[in-house]
């Protein structure tokens, strides 16, 4: 597998999970749309992020440039930041 394409696909997948998670809590119509899609919003988020991962990977799999160590560090930092955003979002949502 092309590791640079995998890294970029992971970035797009985890960003899409975070956006869908927050959007579904802020917009009832979006959550209903996700629920209607597969029967449960969580399954829809899982499948959509998986589809995004594969589409990005298939589009970028032939890129020639090498994956640099810094690219992985960006993914790690992004993972930490997005995890904190999700935790804070649900904490604030629960308190107000």
């Amino acid at each position: 597998m092309n590791s640079k394409a995998v890294n970029l696909s992971v970035i797009f997948a985890i960003i899409s999970i975070t956006i869908m998670t927050i959007l579904a809590e802020l917009s009832k119509s979006f959550k209903d749309f996700l629920t209607q899609l597969t029967g449960h919003h969580w399954i829809s988020k899982s499948l959509i992020s998986l589809i995004i991962f594969f589409i990005i990977y298939l589009s970028l799999r032939k890129i020639k440039s090498e994956l640099k160590e810094n690219n992985i560090y960006y993914t790690i930092i992004l993972t930490i930041v997005l995890s904190i955003i999700i935790l804070l979002f649900f904490t604030i949502e629960s308190l107000i």
């Binding site: 590791s3 997948a13 899982s46 991962f53 997005l82 995890s83």
Partner: peptide, 12 residues
Amino acid sequence: HIFLFLPFLSVL
């Protein structure tokens, strides 16, 4: 929701 990150990070 954070669990959903794990399969993708594991693939990487």
